[in-house]
Simulated scan of single mutants.
Amino acid sequence: MRWKGRRGSSNVEDRRSMGGRPRMRVGGRQVRGGGLGLTGLLIIVGIAWLTGINPLTLLGQLDGGGGYDTQSYQTQAPRSAADQETAQFVSVVLADTENTWGQIFENGGATYPEPTLVLFSGSVSSACGYASAATGPFYCGADSKLYIDLSFYQELANQLNAPGDFAQAYVLAHEVGHHIQNVLGVLPEFQKARRTLSKAEGNALSVRVELQADCYAGIWAHYAARQKGFVEEGDIDEALNAASRIGDDTLQRQAQGYVVPESFNHGTSAQRASWFKKGFQSGDLNACDTFSAASL
Rank of each mutant, 00 (worst) to 15 (best):
Y73H: 07
G234Y: 01
N158W: 09
R195P: 06
R25D: 03
E232D: 12
S125C: 01
G229L: 04
R15W: 04
G129D: 02
F89A: 10
Y68F: 09
D237E: 13
S274V: 04
L94V: 03
F105K: 06
L240I: 11
T268P: 02
P115N: 07
L36D: 08
V90F: 06
G67R: 07
G283L: 10
C215P: 01
A81D: 11
R7H: 11
W101P: 05
S206E: 14
T75N: 02
A294W: 14
G202P: 05
A77G: 03
H174Q: 01
D63T: 12
G35R: 12
C215H: 04
A270R: 14
W3D: 07
H179N: 02
A221V: 07
G34E: 08
F166V: 08
I246E: 08
A242H: 14
P115K: 05
C140P: 12
Q212K: 10
L42N: 14
G27R: 12
T116Q: 13
V45G: 05
S91H: 10
G136D: 01
S125D: 01
G5V: 02
V118I: 05
S125Q: 14
S144Y: 11
F280S: 03
G66K: 12
S282M: 03
K278V: 09
A242L: 15
K4I: 10
I236F: 05
D289K: 09
L94D: 02
T97D: 14
V209M: 11
R226E: 05
A157M: 10
G279E: 07
L94M: 14
A217E: 07
G234R: 10
R226V: 08
A225V: 10
N107M: 15
R208Y: 10
S292H: 14
S263W: 10
I47S: 10
H174A: 00
H222R: 10
S121G: 02
L240H: 05
E262W: 13
G64L: 07
Q84W: 09
F152T: 04
E189L: 14
G136Q: 04
A225N: 15
G20I: 00
G65T: 07
V207C: 01
F152Q: 00
P137R: 05
